[in-house]
């Protein structure tokens, strides 16, 4: 369906932005989680998650890759995709709270490396990108419906 190519590309972008929002909600929900997974009998706090975004080229079939190589970047590709959800390797925050059940012998608790400020920025960026892609999609739809008026 070549006439719906731009709509399909916008759809992949919308799906990608939804996934980014899911990741942001997970990070915000777990911003106080001290028990995410057990490593060597010790609870590790939640690690901030991030998405890796890459552009997807064609259907990945031999023919599409061959055409891309021969015609040297004349294809527009087929949108974006999330290749991986990776973890933020930055160190955990240390908070002094001796009453906490997960405090170590010095009274410090390891808190997740989630920064609510960063998460809010990510959330706003995902929302705005979603809106922008909906605008692109509506423009492509408007073009198609305008084309149907040719010769009326």
């Amino acid at each position: 369906m070549s006439i719906f190519n731009s709509i399909n590309i916008s759809a992949s972008a919308l799906t990608m932005q939804r996934l980014r929002m899911d990741v942001v909600s997970s990070n915000m929900a777990n911003s106080e989680t001290t028990r995410s997974k057990m490593v060597d009998g010790v609870w590790q706090p939640y690690r901030r998650k991030m998405v890796e975004i890459s552009s997807s080229n064609g259907s990945g079939s031999f023919a599409s890759i061959f055409n891309d190589t021969v015609q040297s970047n004349t294809s527009v590709g087929s949108g974006v995709k999330v290749t991986k959800i990776s973890e933020d390797k930055s160190p955990f925050k240390l908070v002094y709270n001796p009453e906490h059940p997960d405090a170590d012998e010095n009274g410090y608790v390891q808190m997740p490396n989630v920064d609510p400020l960063k998460e809010m920025v990510d959330l706003m960026s995902a929302t705005r990108s979603y809106e922008a892609n909906v605008t692109v999609l509506n423009a492509s739809k408007g073009l198609l419906t305008k084309a149907l008026e040719i010769g009326k």
Binding site: F4, S10, A11, L14, T15, R18, V134, L137, K141, L148
Partner: peptide
């Protein structure tokens, strides 16, 4: 959004 896009496609 995929539901809406599918219905728009079929409408067009």
């Amino acid at each position: 959004h995929n539901v809406m896009i599918a219905s728009e496609k079929s409408s067009i």
